[in-house]
Design a protein around this nucleic acid. Structure first.
Lengths: 121, 121
DNA sequence: TAAACGTATGAACAAATATTCATATATTTA
DNA sequence: TAAATATATGAATATTTGTTCATACGTTTA
């Protein structure tokens, strides 16, 4: 009874095709790289951030105008902008007390395109 | 003192560039589309699911082999496969009691590519 | 220089979600 | 047919995370 026996082992994982498991294990990218990839997509996995990025796709905007466009309060938008900034998806410039945000590069556009491709079919 | 006044209003959002806000509002995709886009990226925003997809990128695999490859228990993998299945990112076929999963189409590859492009610079 | 204003941020709270555990289901095999 | 096995799933728990509120910071202006 392998199941019962294995319950006290380090790991009760069963393997059916050891060859495939070995092959795929070798082909998998580094753990850290996959972690970073998930972290990146996590940024896109929030409606507020998607809306902000989508707005910046159309125009550079200041914080309060973004808030007005989305119908959200300034604080919520500011918090999310911080996350987008940390992920290097947006950049900003200051003009007096106004801070203008814009897309950091065109990766956002490409990622959006692929996303839309999937949901539109 | 507009700030204090507005605290009792429906909405205290300030607008600096009304023209830009109006323009961007018109150009924004439908709310529902953006929601769906965020939902899609949310799927990619989890390390376990990223690893599963990455494994399936290399080979069709059964549930327990995926679990063995990732060093996770069968239940956790099965739960995540259900989510991937619902999002139509993976498909499956049954052979006796074994269920084999594979990528539904090549959208996953494209989305991965764009993601890696961003983190690798 | 004091008030107003645009933005940033820490803390608190609420909601979402991933994993584990136990168990159910379905298929094969002895 | 009973036992073994591969997978699925509901419930519980723990963690993560988004929003709100209050307030701080930095800049402008009266």
């Amino acid at each position: 009874m392998r199941g019962e026996f294995n319950k006290n082992e380090i790991c009760e994982i069963t393997v059916i095709h050891a060859d495939i498991v070995d092959k795929v294990k070798k082909l998998m990218p580094e753990e850290e790289k996959l972690y970073d990839l998930a972290e990146l997509f996590k940024i896109f996995g929030d409606t507020t951030r998607i809306k902000i990025l989508c707005a910046l796709l159309k125009s550079e905007m200041c914080v309060c105008d973004i808030a007005a466009t989305l119908g959200m309060n300034q604080s919520a938008v500011s918090h999310q902008l911080r996350i987008l900034k940390q992920s290097k998806l947006v950049k900003y410039r200051k003009d007096g007390k106004v801070v203008y945000y814009s897309l950091a590069d065109d990766h956002v556009i490409k990622i959006f395109e692929q996303g839309f491709n999937h949901i539109e079919e």
